[in-house]
Design a protein around this nucleic acid. Structure first.
Length: 503
RNA sequence: GUCCCCGUCGUCUAGCCCGGCCUAGGACACCGCCCUUUCACGGCGAUAACACGGGUUCAAAUCCCGUCGGGGACGCCA
């Protein structure tokens, strides 16, 4: 018995239907996220369906890459399908539509590709002569083995208006006469996207189709298809597009790695931050908040909160040339920094480990746990941790300019080398015996500064550079505690040595 | 070309449906100041937008029309 409950009242069943023709890109990821949020907010079901009917362009690597991306996002789904395994259903339904007189055979040879002759005299609607072919002629040619595509017989000349209410864009309508006779089956018998998609949506009882706005005008075709299938059309919600800074649609070919989800993962974005960022592109909680946890978003997410204007992913266009940190959208980076700071230290430490691993540094869990609090406010992306904390793990400091050891007063171009040497000597003596904990170091070193008639700044800089190999580093005492007495003394001695080259 | 969608600070957006509370709010970025042993975090502050033109109205970012601008769709791709 058919379920007559209107789709708007049923428990939602939504689907994310990527086609495996490349890696998962940010636009697709956002569509997935919005579907997930809608499903989870409404206690609905999330379906993942691989739309892999284009045998030519589908690759296994792409399937893997998509799963990899989705897994990283950490959002689950409840059911999984592959369109290529449902071919029989698609063909059977195409036959049924044909049998109902809603489709016809088109024997016109396939067009070679994307040249398209549509731009010259308005839109292409159908191949003349083919709609009107008599049943006999059509059957005869088919029986003779002439290849044909099956096309939807769009109602023409009846003044019929197709309409639907989009959950984001509102009331939409269009004259059926303006819709092309789209293909259902290709001449090789394979279903097209439109056919396979609608047949599966109907069969899987999808209640809400949430997808990119680039499908808005395709919806009329789909309405026609659901009708011919004898299925109630689901609700539609189209999402504004994600565009590049120049306003064009994000494309893998044109914009490169910045549109791939794995690029964000590899750069050290936290999935929750990435999701947070993507959600803010085209949706808003409307309460001036922007740092949100997944759970907070899920709790308040509604389609009514989605806007209609395209959103710019504001990456820098140096993206093609390098893996430049600055190439990411600044807000995404900021959100990531916020999420990093919101993470418990032990979890952050665990997340950081693979980045050190990849950089060839063995960071023991204990040491990493000690170092993490010192850098967590100093990194925006996880991978920033490596340059920020390398000196903790390197057995030998990378070479640095000894001049860094010498503090400069305002306006001075050359510092007092002798002073720097005195500082280091004093420090060496003091540090040889003082207990290596924060407060003792604080007290000892400040007293040492006083004894030299120095303020903290000029006292600490030579030590910091000696110990860290650079001027900018985490707070000195905590750093020294983690490094330990041996390492600190050794590095200060080396610094003293290198100072000689300046004398 | 035809059809469709969109147009608030540089960017993401609130406000628009149900005109007045909007001398347009928040966030990021940028700049400045404060905090401070460096860097960062944090705090404070500054600059910055209703695409344009007509209506309607006592009153328009909000309603209507037009213009311009941007985007999308028009495949035997998805």
């Amino acid at each position: 018995m058919p379920d007559s409950t209107p789709s708007s009242l049923k428990t939602p069943r939504v689907r994310f239907a990527p086609s495996p023709t490349g890696y998962l890109h940010v636009g697709s990821a956002r569509t997935f996220i919005f579907n997930w949020l809608f499903a989870r907010h409404n206690n609905g079901t999330m379906v993942l369906r691989l739309d892999d009917t284009d045998v030519e362009r589908n690759t296994e690597a792409s399937v893997q890459s998509i799963f990899e991306g989705l897994r990283w996002l950490g959002l689950n789904w409840d059911e999984e399908y592959k369109q290529s395994e449902r071919l029989a259903l698609h063909r059977q339904q195409a036959e049924a539509i044909f049998a109902r007189g809603r489709a016809y055979r088109d024997f016109t040879p396939a067009h070679s590709g994307d040249e398209g002759q549509s731009s010259t005299q308005g839109a292409w609607l159908c191949n003349p002569g083919m709609r009107e072919l008599s049943k006999e002629a059509s059957d005869r040619r088919a029986a003779a083995g002439e290849p044909f595509a099956l096309r939807y017989l769009v109602p023409r000349g009846q003044g019929r208006t197709l309409q639907f209410v989009d959950r984001v864009y509102g009331e939409q309508s269009k004259l059926a006469d303006e819709v092309e006779d789209f293909a259902l089956l290709r001449s090789d018998g394979m279903p097209t996207y439109h056919l396979a998609s609608c047949v599966d949506d109907a069969d899987l009882r999808i209640t809400h189709i949430i997808r990119g706005q680039d499908h808005l005008t395709n919806t009329y075709k789909h309405l026609l298809l659901f009708e011919a299938l004898g299925a109630e059309a689901p609700q539609f919600a189209h999402l504004p597009l994600l565009v590049a800074p120049d306003g064009s649609k994000l494309s893998k070919r044109k914009h490169g790695p910045v549109v791939s989800v794995t690029t964000y993962r590899d750069a050290g974005f936290l999935p929750q931050a990435f999701v947070n960022f993507l959600c803010l592109l085209g949706w808003s909680p409307k309460n001036d908040r922007d740092f949100l946890t997944l759970e907070e978003i899920r709790a308040v997410f509604t389609l009514e909160g989605v806007n209609r204007a395209n959103a710019v992913v504001n990456f820098t266009d140096t993206a093609l040339s390098s893996s430049d940190l600055d190439s990411f959208d600044a807000k995404a980076v900021w959100l990531n920094a916020e999420h990093i700071r919101a993470l418990p230290v032990d979890e952050l430490a665990r997340r950081l480990e693979p980045f050190f691993e990849r950089a060839g540094m063995h960071a023991s869990p204990e040491k990493l746990l000690a170092v993490t609090p010192l850098i967590r406010e100093r990194i925006k992306l996880l991978r920033d941790a490596v340059p920020a904390a390398d000196f903790f793990f390197l057995p030998q400091l990378a070479p640095y300019d000894p001049a860094e050891l010498v503090p400069l007063k305002k306006g001075e171009s050359t510092g007092d080398v002798a002073l720097a040497r005195r500082v280091l000597e004093t420090a060496l003596q003091a540090l040889a015996t003082t207990p290596f904990d924060h407060d003792s170091l604080d007290k000892t070193l400040r007293e040492a500064a006083a004894s030299l008639g120095l303020k903290a700044g000029p006292m600490f800089q030579p030590i910091r550079v000696a110990v860290c190999g650079r001027k900018n580093a985490p707070p000195l005492f905590e750093t020294m505690v983690v490094l330990g007495r041996e390492v600190c003394l050794e590095r200060i001695r080396q610094a003293e040595q290198s100072l000689q080259s300046l004398a």
